[in-house]
């Protein structure tokens, strides 16, 4: 099992995330994808003895996450977990997420802050935006999706291969779009309630109004995704 940790200028937080991982998921291989950080993110991560992939320039979260999936594909992993380097995700939730893939037959398990047991508070505008987005994504996926922007997910073999070759690059919308892409490939998707922490430091996805505008943008991107033809998936190769 592989844990993919995308990180951009997270030197202050990544240590905590990696400690969390080694405490609660010591059996997992961890790969930190340093997305062209200008701070000591890579050095801090290396001190924890994890694999660090250093991108020579900033590609955005999508590009970083995809690098992790490529690494996972090359390494022949059965399960890959996306885990943010900012300390928002909780490593003790990984087990329940992964179990849905290894035992539940899911091809993509998404950790939801909003399913029962998640209990996450947004501001009003962001709440409305996230409800709207969830409704649109649910419609496209033909199943109930409560937290499409969640970047806490576990992917099975087929999904790893698919994401290694095709991953959305849109700014801040990559998680939602990836979910829609997976749904359009008719992958089996499940949501798992996973409580998350508020971020330790730094600001994630900006203020309320900005967040709402981003949401509208993501909805537009998702609708455009529906116009695209489905991608033929690469056959599995034994490497």
């Amino acid at each position: 099992m592989l844990v993919i940790v995308p990180a951009y200028n997270e030197a202050a937080n990544i240590g905590r995330a990696l400690e969390d991982l080694s405490a609660h998921a010591p059996w997992a291989d961890v790969v930190v994808v340093d997305d062209g950080s200008t701070d000591a993110t890579a050095e801090v991560a290396r001190r924890f003895g994890v694999t660090v992939l250093r991108l020579p320039c900033n590609l955005g979260v999508g590009g970083a996450v995809q690098t992790g999936y490529r690494y996972g594909l090359l390494g022949g992993y059965d399960v890959a977990v996306q885990f943010d380097g900012d300390g928002q995700h909780r490593a003790d939730q990984i087990r329940s997420l992964v179990r849905r893939v290894t035992e539940g037959g899911a091809e993509l398990a998404v950790g939801s802050r909003l399913l029962e047991g998640g209990g996450y508070r947004f501001g009003l505008l962001r709440y409305l935006g996230s409800r709207l987005l969830a409704a649109v994504v649910s419609l496209i996926a033909r199943q109930r999706i409560t937290d499409p922007t969640s970047g806490f997910r576990a992917a099975g073999r087929r999904t790893i291969r698919f994401f290694a070759h095709h991953y959305p690059q849109s700014y801040l919308g990559d998680t939602t779009e990836a979910l829609v892409w997976a749904a359009r490939q008719r992958m089996k998707i499940v949501e798992v309630p996973t409580p998350m922490r508020p971020r330790h430091s730094g600001s994630s996805s900006a203020s309320n109004l900005l967040g709402f505008l981003h949401t509208l943008r993501i909805i537009l991107a998702v609708l455009v995704d529906c116009l695209e033809p489905r991608v033929p998936e690469e056959p599995e190769e034994t490497k």
Partner: peptide
Amino acid sequence: AQRLALLE
């Protein structure tokens, strides 16, 4: 960039 990171 991705290939470079992996190869490195």
